[in-house]
């Protein structure tokens, strides 16, 4: 059964499965160790003493590529991406992940192999990387590093803004640890997400970027200080996860690869279309497009054009006047029909009542006589043309009883003397 329809075939809201949208996707790292030749790094865990190793991108056994961030995360055999060393003196290091389409992100998590950085930011793009907005900041010095207050209260007014926290900075574990950002956590409208366009927008992202800004806070004690210091300063992450759902606005239960572009798109139902089912299918504009909710699927409805038009447009005024039932206006009515729904015959034609209005020959030409008729428009129902004095017949093509044809086209029938 299709989750987008109930057992009676009525449309109902449907949503794609919850997934790790990052899994298997490419991550662009601004810095990766060993990319410019082998380099030495030293790590220290809680239990063991400091040990040094070599990172070499050309040797698979010693490489720590960015692809390790989104591969299968096996806790018994951790594969870690690792930045170049000396990051304490270097500019920011960033990890950029393209999700390929809009997702509604529930959380972003970063599982560290190295110690957690003192300051990092998570940002998102909603336009495939053209522009970026902050999603969340972590720092022990929020004001100094990011110019934001620490742990600022989240209210209805600012619930679509990034906040800064030092919640990640617990001393233990020294190395490793998970930093997870829950996009709706603490946001007042989260309990009524369905009717909060602000939060629906807030959780929407096409790309995620994690930027490590500072490994250690100034003055923080540094093990092995002085001795090969740079080799200890690097970022290492085993897993970057983006938990969420493919954004389909409640009109699809899955996303599929498009055949032509290979990109991910929603498998739209409810007569919707677009990568995110964010518009109605052509000719289905009788109601305005709306996101589906738990209570109402807001299915797109075909315009009623009685089979005489292939295109229509939506008119909000008419929709409101109809009591929010129908707002479609048919365009280019064919078969000599006219009107909003192509529901009557255009001028010069009349309705053949023996055929339904949807029949392609439902409208017949008036065929008013060029001389006998006073005009070209006939009665819409009967087909009777307006006849000149003394003329008769549906098309005004005969002289009435007691009249005879004259030679004048102005008065074609004159009374018999």
């Amino acid at each position: 059964p299709d989750p987008c329809y109930d057992e009676h075939g009525a449309a109902r809201r449907c949503i794609p499965d919850f997934v790790n949208a990052a899994f298997g996707k490419e991550v662009r790292a601004s810095s990766t160790c060993g990319a410019r030749g082998p380099n030495r790094y030293c790590a220290r865990s809680e239990e063991s003493a400091r040990t040094c190793h070599t990172c070499d991108a050309s040797d698979p056994r010693r490489a720590h590529p960015a692809s390790y961030l989104t591969d299968l995360n096996n806790p018994h055999n951790l594969t870690c991406w690792q930045s170049e060393t000396g990051v304490q003196r270097a500019p920011n290091v960033s990890l950029t992940l393209s999700l390929g389409k809009k997702f509604e992100v529930t959380y972003v998590s970063v599982q560290f192999c190295s110690r957690r950085p003192d300051s990092m930011a998570i940002s998102k793009s909603m336009d495939y990387g053209k522009t970026w907005v902050p999603f969340q900041f972590y720092s022990t010095q929020c004001r100094k590093v990011y110019g934001r207050p620490s742990r600022a209260p989240i209210t209805k007014q600012n619930e679509q803004e990034a906040v800064c926290t030092d919640a990640h900075a617990d001393a233990r574990p020294l190395s490793g640890g998970l930093v997870a950002f829950s996009t709706l956590d603490g946001r007042p409208s989260a309990h009524d997400f369905d009717s909060s366009p602000v939060l629906q927008d807030w959780v929407t992202a096409t790309d995620i970027r994690v930027t490590f800004s500072r490994l250690r806070a100034p003055g923080e004690p540094d093990e092995g200080e002085g001795e090969d210091e740079d080799a200890q300063h690097f970022y290492a992450v085993s897993d970057l996860q983006v938990g969420g759902r493919c954004k389909c606005n409640g009109h699809a239960s899955r996303c599929v690869r498009e055949r032509e572009s290979g990109g991910l798109v929603c498998d739209c139902k409810h007569n919707t279309a677009g990568a995110e089912c964010d518009r109605c299918k052509p000719f289905h504009y009788d109601r305005p497009w709306q996101r589906a909710t738990a209570r109402e699927a807001h299915e797109c409805v075909a315009c009623n054009c009685n089979l005489h038009a292939r295109r229509c447009r939506f008119n909000m005024e008419l929709y409101k006047l109809s009591g929010r039932k129908s707002g479609g206006v048919c365009l280019n009515c064919r078969h000599n029909t006219a009107g909003r729904h192509c529901h009557y015959c255009k001028e010069g034609y009349y309705r053949d009542m023996s055929k339904p209005i949807s029949h392609r020959k439902a409208c017949k030409a008036c065929d008013c006589h060029p001389v006998g008729a006073a005009g070209k428009t006939c009665n819409q129902t009967t087909g009777q043309c307006p006849c000149k004095d003394g003329v008769t017949g549906i098309t005004c093509n005969r002289c009435a009883k007691g009249y005879q044809q004259s030679r004048s086209p102005i008065a074609p029938c004159i009374k018999i003397p």
């Binding site: 006589h369 006998g372 093509n397 030679r407 004048s408």
Partner: peptide, 24 residues
């Protein structure tokens, strides 16, 4: 009784040339 159809050929179009239907 069937009344005869108006015979276009019987009309004198001299003064009404612009009204005369185009013959297909």
């Amino acid at each position: 009784e069937v009344l005869p159809t108006l015979d276009m050929a019987l009309f004198d179009w001299t003064d009404y040339e612009d009204m005369k239907p185009v013959d297909n």
